[in-house]
Design a protein around this nucleic acid. Structure first.
Lengths: 115, 115
DNA sequence: GCCCATAGTGTCAAAAAGGATACCGTGATG
DNA sequence: CATCACGGTATCCTTTTTGACACTATGGGC
């Protein structure tokens, strides 16, 4: 998506603004994984098959910039970086759960056909 | 988004599948508008400032293909085409409302700063 | 000395999404 | 006769997003 220019006069609707924060192929999944707790970079990578290192970094950076997640770097070797939801990110829980539940009940192969 | 190729082996997570149905800059907004009832093409267009005719058509077609909305064409002149949520689309209501509420409470200028 | 893991960054190129614009057919309206 | 509204299509072009791949630093293990 040529996503919203990250700053838009927002044509009237809070939904659109909300969307601009969580678009991107991986953001919701990342947030969802983080719901269960803090994760390190490579843990996320393993939890989300298909995401590349670059993409993961990118999305995490944007999520951080939007104040949805918190990034903590431990000055160690090997590096240790932990990601967790910010308060704002946690407030997305209802949305994430609603989405998950919808996916589960409406997208299972059976349900999809029954629809 | 080079969105999910519309058919993916789906690496394990129903959330990802759900996302592939509602990505696109306008889909959620369209669905949200349709929550309140049936709308005609140009009504949608007016309700969603910023969307172009082409985009609206595109997104509506995809939503229809994914079984989230229903398109009814009346053989009249001038043409009359009505869009409404399918049962499946209506089942998205909790998600849409959760998103709207999150947007309202967490993205108002004050809240955004307080975050 | 060589390889591994961690958490990245940088560059390049492909693919997709989105936007602008012009055009279509029809009947009513002026 | 010209124009408008409706619900689109078709085409072209630009911007974004994404993916592939190579490369980095450091300390530990073999």
């Amino acid at each position: 998506m040529p996503r919203a220019p990250r700053q838009q006069s927002c044509t009237g609707c809070s939904v659109e603004r909300a969307l601009s924060l969580i678009d991107g192929k991986w953001k919701i999944v990342i947030l969802y994984k983080l719901l269960k707790g803090t994760l390190r970079f490579n843990e996320l990578r393993r939890l989300i098959p298909g995401v590349t290192q670059r993409m993961l970094t990118h999305q995490l950076r944007e999520l951080e910039a939007d104040g949805l997640i918190v990034r903590v770097v431990y000055a160690q070797v090997p590096p240790r970086v932990e990601y967790s939801l910010s308060t704002r990110g946690q407030s997305l829980e209802p949305v994430l759960l609603a989405l998950k539940q919808w996916g589960d009940t409406n997208l299972s192969s059976q349900a999809a056909k029954a629809a």
